[in-house]
Design a protein around this nucleic acid. Sequence first.
DNA 1: CCGGTTTCAGAAACCGGTTACAGACTCTGC
DNA 2: GCAGAGTCTGTAACCGGTTTCTGAAACCGG
Lengths: 332, 332
Amino acid sequence: MRATIRDVAREAGVSIATVSRTMRDPGSVRVETRERVEAVASRLEYVPSQLGRQLAERRHAANGIVFPDLSGPYFAEVVLGYEAVAGELGRSVLILSTAGRDDADRAVAAMAERCDGLVVLGQTISDAAVTAMVRRGTPVVLVARPSLDGIDSVRAHNLDGARALAHHVLDTGATDVAFVGDPGSGPDVAERHAGVAAVVAERGARLRLWPVTEMDEAAGEHLAAGLGTRDLPDALVCANDEMALGLLGALAERGVRVPDDVVVTGWDDVMAARYAGLTTVRQPMREIGATAARLLDERISGARVEVAHEVLPTTLVPRDTTSSPTPRKVAR
Amino acid sequence: MRATIRDVAREAGVSIATVSRTMRDPGSVRVETRERVEAVASRLEYVPSQLGRQLAERRHAANGIVFPDLSGPYFAEVVLGYEAVAGELGRSVLILSTAGRDDADRAVAAMAERCDGLVVLGQTISDAAVTAMVRRGTPVVLVARPSLDGIDSVRAHNLDGARALAHHVLDTGATDVAFVGDPGSGPDVAERHAGVAAVVAERGARLRLWPVTEMDEAAGEHLAAGLGTRDLPDALVCANDEMALGLLGALAERGVRVPDDVVVTGWDDVMAARYAGLTTVRQPMREIGATAARLLDERISGARVEVAHEVLPTTLVPRDTTSSPTPRKVAR
DNA sequence: CCGGTTTCAGAAACCGGTTACAGACTCTGC
DNA sequence: GCAGAGTCTGTAACCGGTTTCTGAAACCGG
């Protein structure tokens, strides 16, 4: 069994208090004593138990992060940004994916018992579960999810991005725009839709809504398959890249030319979007994660008591699906 | 402050031992007593402290996973597979990314103090750090990394995949093959190179090695830029998809036709590979993570003492970059 | 009604640390 | 040489649970 603080104390002929002090505040121990303790500690390969320490300090020194999935680049990047900052702040990171888990609320509640605070990405758990955790004293930061009363949040500025995107699309000459996605699926999509709708109205164009149930590639393909039955719009503004990519493939199969016959856009700037030449909107994913980590830390340490809502800027990334391809150079 | 076991015991007029038993083995407590304790517990919203429990049980009920990065799809998928199984086994998952961290060894050692065992992906930390942890009693499973003496590991069958890939490439008629990548960068690439080399030799073709320092898109682009100076081979077998994708873009710019002038392959089957029509080799990433979680659990629980080395099969995914494009259908 | 077995619950030790408090010892300055 | 201040270090309580051991009460058949 590994050496404990009592083993070290006994061997060094001191009390456990002195060993503890030697480990955490060497300056408070006489040099001579300290060296004796340190010698014994290193001989016994003593490393303080985190469990004992955490119990005594009544803190976990760990943060959690809940996400639906990591398959897409979106959440993976957020997690990375989060982990980097949490690491700097001396906190471990616990992860929990709710994909394919039917008891997400319970799983998250269990995780809340193992960390000092956590970040919830998207619509992974119920509002009730979130407020229950906060009520119990676990700080929570919401990301990519509508903010709840008194709870910190971090979001990308969907509205701004959507407005910029809409202007760009209309600048191609489009007057008949279709928004592909379900605004009811969450605030992100709702805001994107609202931003596009506002600009389209301002500039006197027409906006239709093409609802989907799932927002994945298959949805895009399926939509393209049913295209013949409706008149083709000038622009297909998709709520995310996956659908746009699915659409692109299916449109090409059907001989519809992009961007000549129809302009297509996505949202997220996944890696594949670059190769497909897909015009899209980029969110500062890593920065979102990092910001969430900072907000959470401020909350846990008590450095801040007022509620904070951070909104980070988005970037329009114009590519071939909204303008005639440049000499085949992959836009960065 | 939250209720503790002693609060519940006092209110219910029983000892803390009885409360503890009520929580973890209700059957061992008389119905009447149990109901009284449960009533008090729910009234006080008592939830046992994980810290106290963990200290008493001397286990963390958490596993760690160390990875270099999550940007690519590779590690993200492994992490997902790992998390899913660990969750089923009732263990939390701690993550640690070594990207942009100069003290990876120390960070991992610190994490090892907070979990019952961990998985190390790739060349994230030194062999010395790994063996040190194992010596201290922390079970470790290595993934995508050469196995160390007495330490469990999980790998994909690079050799098989490389052989299949090489046969496929030679079947296109190629006789002059270039392998793009640095076999010295790790066992994965070394095995891929070895597999290709073996088949090329068997079938009497020629194999060159095009070394690179970084294995990213920029490397591929840079390589293509320098192409004029060397004679173009029949096939460019890249050690990963990123380089292959970078190459594809740069080749197209230079007017080199793929697959007519040169055949190109990657490795990993990232999402973008599908859109680029890139022939590649798929590894069962989620399954690798899941397998690692199971091996680790067996080790932690002591269910297995002998060392295990799992090798999972790979799949060749032929696409347009090795054969004339089919009618523009995205291959799954 | 009685001895023996079973069931149930409490006392106390324990997990491995942190830290308030107090006592002992060492310096000062007079 | 001694009082007072300052420096170290030890004692012991505490963090919040689990679990062994033990004794009391309930139950059993004869």
